[in-house]
Each structure stands twice: as C-alpha cells, then as structure tokens.
C-alpha cells in the first residue's frame, strides 16, 4: 500500500477548527514499514445494499412522496492512484436536508426537518469503479466555531476500498459555493488543490433534463505499491 499523502490530508491539529484542538494526537504517527502493511479489508457486496439505498430522494419518504429540495445526481468513479477503477468499493453517505438540518438527535438547528428525508445513502461501485446516487442539494448550516461559522453545502462520504488501510472519510463540496472559502473545516486542507479535489463539478452532460442536475465527484484511494501486473 502506498503511504498516506500528507500533502493532501489535513494535519491532526488545525486550531482554526476548534474541535481539533483537544482531539489531535501530538506525539506524531509511528510509521510502519511497507512490508508490514495490511492489504486486506472487509468485503461488502450486493447483499449489503437495499434497492433504495442510493435514492435519498425516496428512501425515507412516505409512499408516493419525495424529499424537498433541488434534485441532484451525484456520480463519479472510485480510482486508485494509478487511475484504475476500484470495483466493489462501498460508499456510505450522509447529509443535511435542503434547509441545512440533519435528522439527528443532537442537531438543534432551527431549520425544520423534512419528514420525507433521512439523509442516509449507500452505493457499491460497478466494474469500472463507477457510482451514482440521487439526492437533494444539502443546505448550508451554522456550527459552533467562533462568532459566526458556516459549513458550505456538503455531503459526507465514508469509503471502503479493498484494504482496511484505505479507509477514508471525507466531504464533497459543490462548485461555485461561496461558503467554501469561509469554512474553517475546509481550511484544514493543506492546499488549494486539495480543496479543488473535494469540489464536485457541475456536469450538464449527465443531467436528466427537466428533472435533476448532475455533479461529478471522483474519489482516489491509496494504491498498491506494485507494478501494474500485480493487481
């Protein structure tokens, strides 16, 4: 397994994001020799996914109802660092509703819940590493981090690749959102290129006309330290 690329991932301690101050190891990570790397991990399959899991517009809705908000398609590929599609990767995603409110006991934001939206989805990548989900555009929401801090619209992703060492949790942002440059959590990223990599592009070629806009978000996991033959 290639090592984590620390030019891409945020460091543990990022004082501008207050929660990191007490939740950041200070001793430094102990590097493991590549020979000690574990290239195994849990495997998930079609049996772990329900038929509605990738349709957040309807998977928590009353019969015949749909979630409120701008209808969107989020799609892309899961790849390794060599650009090969990762087939059978499991993506779990969660998000706020169109008003910026999470269906969670600890979210007290005053925007109302949507009775037809839970904000939970799941999808497996196909043979080429491709995935596609349908949802509504999440709203921005405030969070306690100084006098006035807001999250840009975002979708949380958890990714299982082929090895446990590839486990990734991240967030996807939307092209053109002015809140991105003000967000203390976005600002934990070490470079503008890293922010760019988390920003989904509007992709009109994949819109469903008169129905939903498409956004493209590719995810690159750590690859195997190997010749192309080895996979």
């Amino acid at each position: 397994m290639n090592p984590p690329d620390w030019t891409r991932h945020p460091p543990a301690l990022t004082p501008g994001y207050f929660s990191s101050i007490t939740r950041s190891p200070r001793e430094g990570l102990i590097p493991l020799d590549p020979a000690l790397a574990d290239c195994t991990g849990p495997v998930f399959g079609a049996g772990d996914i329900g038929p509605m899991d990738s349709d957040l517009i309807r998977n928590a809705a009353q019969p015949g109802a749909m979630a409120l908000g701008p209808r969107i398609i989020v799609h892309g590929r899961v790849l390794d660092e060599a650009g090969r599609g990762v087939s059978g990767a499991l993506l779990e995603l969660w998000q706020a509703n169109a008003g910026g409110r999470y269906r969670h006991a600890r979210d007290g934001y005053l925007a109302p819940l949507d009775p037809n939206f839970s904000g939970c989805g799941r999808v497996l990548t196909d043979a080429d590493g491709g995935y596609r989900v349908e949802t509504v555009m999440p709203g921005a929401y405030p969070f306690p981090n100084g006098p006035n801090a807001w999250r840009p619209a975002h979708i949380h992703f958890s990714v299982f690749g082929l090895a446990f060492a590839q486990r990734l949790v991240t967030q996807m942002y939307f092209e053109g959102d002015p809140m991105i440059r003000h967000c203390p959590i976005v600002a934990t990223l070490p470079s503008a290129a890293a922010v760019e990599a988390l920003t989904a592009r509007y992709d009109p070629d994949h819109d469903r006309p008169m129905d939903a806009r498409a956004f493209r978000f590719d995810i690159v996991l750590r690859g195997r330290r190997a010749t192309p033959m080895a996979l």
Binding site: Y102, S158, V169
Partner: peptide, 17 residues
C-alpha cells in the same frame, strides 16, 4: 493521480454509518 483528501466525519456520522 493524487489521493482524495480526508475531512472530519463531524458529529452526525451516525446517520450514514
């Protein structure tokens, strides 16, 4: 290709996980 950066899971990870 470069690795997709990590971001915090936030306080509401239970919804998805």
């Amino acid at each position: 290709m470069k690795q997709t950066p990590s971001q915090t899971a936030g306080p509401f990870l239970h919804i998805g996980m």
